[in-house]
Lab assay of single mutants.
Amino acid sequence: ENVVSAPMPGKVLRVLVRVGDRVRVGQGLLVLEAMKMENEIPSPRDGVVKRILVKEGEIVDTGQPLIELG
């Protein structure tokens, strides 16, 4: 699984990683606000951040690609 998608609609509050960062399974990639709750979106696997597909403040839909892992 190379693309991390939004599990719910919401607003991207914070991106916690940068392109080139090594991440571990379960590590927070970004914080999504949904229904006034902050939800940290975890990495599904170990890898390297290849691309960040959203910006802070952006509104996303369920299933929208957020981050690509390499």
Results as ranks from 00 to 15, higher is better:
E1D: 13
E1F: 00
N2A: 14
V3Q: 11
V4W: 01
S5F: 05
A6G: 04
A6F: 15
A6H: 08
A6T: 10
P7W: 09
P7V: 13
P7L: 14
M8I: 11
M8T: 06
M8A: 05
M8R: 10
P9K: 05
P9Q: 13
G10V: 15
K11S: 14
K11Y: 10
K11V: 13
V12L: 10
L13S: 13
L13M: 12
L16H: 07
R18T: 04
V19S: 13
G20L: 11
D21R: 02
D21L: 02
D21E: 03
R22D: 02
V23F: 13
V23E: 06
V23S: 10
R24A: 11
V25E: 05
V25R: 08
V25G: 15
G26E: 11
G26Q: 08
Q27T: 03
G28N: 06
L29P: 00
L30T: 13
L30S: 05
L30A: 13
V31I: 07
L32E: 06
L32V: 10
L32N: 12
L32A: 07
A34K: 08
M35P: 06
K36Q: 06
K36S: 05
E38N: 03
E38I: 12
E38D: 07
N39M: 13
E40L: 04
E40C: 01
E40H: 06
I41L: 05
I41S: 09
I41H: 09
P44L: 12
R45T: 15
D46N: 08
D46G: 10
D46H: 03
D46F: 02
V48K: 03
V48A: 08
V49T: 05
K50G: 10
R51V: 15
R51T: 12
R51N: 14
R51Q: 14
I52N: 11
L53P: 11
L53W: 08
E56T: 07
E58H: 06
E58D: 13
V60T: 10
V60E: 02
V60F: 11
D61Y: 09
D61E: 13
T62H: 14
G63T: 13
G63Y: 07
Q64D: 06
Q64K: 05
Q64W: 12
L66W: 06
L66T: 09
I67F: 05
E68K: 00
E68N: 00
L69K: 01
L69V: 15
L69R: 01
